[in-house]
Amino acid sequence: MLRLVRDRRLPIVGGCGGVWSFIHVDDVASATAAAVTPGPSGLYNIVDDEPAAVAEWLPELARIVGARPPLRVPAWVARPMIGVFGVTWMTASRGSSNEKAKALLEWSPRYSSWREGFRSGLGVPATSGGTRKSGGTEHSV
């Protein structure tokens, strides 16, 4: 996905209505540990606390990795390339809630926001200034 973002090949599709939920791999591990301990069994959404619209998280991810902002593409243009499912995912998906996992597993994500998770997962300092190196190339962040 990062290669697509860097190459400006992951556009914002249609009316920008899709909302995604994210989770940091460290939070997946802690939620898994909480789920295998004695307690209520069931299905849980293991996501951060902040579902985000594609129109919000995709430009921020591009900024973090030093890429130009994503293009905007009408849904009818994207449909032949990514199909009906892809267009729906980008335009109409709804984020998930982690409230059940937080309440019943007594778990909460270390990275409560996708912003923190993106920066941590990509090795970018929490401050918005500065640069970082990736593959020998310096990126402004």
Rank of each mutant, 00 (worst) to 15 (best):
G130P: 03
G130Q: 02
P38F: 07
V65N: 03
I12S: 09
P38Y: 07
R8L: 02
R8G: 12
A34T: 02
E116V: 02
L4R: 15
V47T: 13
S128M: 04
F22M: 09
V87D: 10
W107Q: 07
E99G: 06
L61T: 10
L43F: 08
S140L: 05
R9S: 09
R79V: 10
R9L: 08
N45P: 03
K100C: 02
T137Q: 12
V124K: 00
S96N: 03
D48W: 10
W57K: 09
E50F: 09
E50C: 15
L10R: 00
T88A: 14
S21M: 09
H24Q: 12
L58F: 06
R63W: 00
V36C: 15
L10V: 07
W107E: 02
S30N: 06
E50W: 10
S97E: 07
F118S: 01
P11E: 07
G66A: 07
F22A: 02
A35S: 15
N45I: 01
Y111A: 09
S93L: 06
S93E: 04
V36M: 13
V47N: 07
V36E: 08
T88C: 10
D26N: 14
E116R: 12
A75Y: 05
H24T: 04
P70M: 03
P38R: 05
G135M: 02
R79H: 11
A29I: 11
P11F: 07
P125Y: 09
E56W: 02
P59R: 01
R63M: 00
L58W: 03
V87K: 04
S120F: 08
T131C: 11
G136V: 04
A29V: 14
V28F: 08
G117A: 14
G123Y: 13
R8H: 11
A31K: 06
R9W: 00
P11T: 05
M81G: 13
R72I: 04
V124H: 05
K100Y: 06
R3I: 13
V54E: 04
V25S: 14
R119K: 14
V77S: 11
P11L: 06
S41N: 12
W114G: 01
R68V: 00
F118E: 06
G123R: 12
S93M: 11
R110C: 08
A67E: 03
I82A: 11
